[in-house]
Amino acid sequence: MKWVKDWYLSDIILLALIGVFFGIIFLGTNYVYDVLTAVFAPLGLSQIPNELLLGLWCMPGMLAGYMLRIKGASVLGEFLASVVEMLFGGQWGASTMISGILQGIGSELGFTLTRYKHYDWLGLAATAATTTIVTFGWDLARSGYGKLQLWLLLLFFVVRFCSMFVFGGLLTRAITDLLDRSHVLKTTHTN
């Protein structure tokens, strides 16, 4: 259980707090999601809003990995965010945790593949790509994507990747740039 030693109590609380903060900020997007879903439903494209917003919901993991730069930060960050969401009475219950773990592993893979050395655009693009691939694989089964027509699958895949890159890449980068400029991360990095 060596990995347990790499984590300090303050890191764990930090990731959980970020999870709660982001969860509360995301609450507002539920209305956007519901309205858009209702609009797209008659076309049979109601997963589009889900694909558009999925990057936002996967952001805690990608951000945690990019910001803390500890192995396993993405998995833990996204998982804790999903646990907190479930405890809040998030409507999807236990399946939230499964999604959270998978999204976290997806984000982590991007940093693993770049050997935890590329905390730049390459790393961000990699994590966006792996998160897209892993979560898409899960949706092939869970959301019945495996039974959809091919053009639609491709459309969903492209939209999902764009969303991952916008929120997990561009927005994460913008946030961490602000953090870098304020020099607050040094204290957490030395932990």
Partner: peptide, 23 residues
């Protein structure tokens, strides 16, 4: 709004302070 980096930035700043205080 939920796409503003400043919103998340401030949220993370508070999280860092609170996490150290709590620990």
């Amino acid at each position: 709004s939920f796409w503003s980096p400043q919103l998340y930035f401030k949220a993370i700043l508070i999280s860092i302070t609170w996490s150290q205080n709590l620990a």
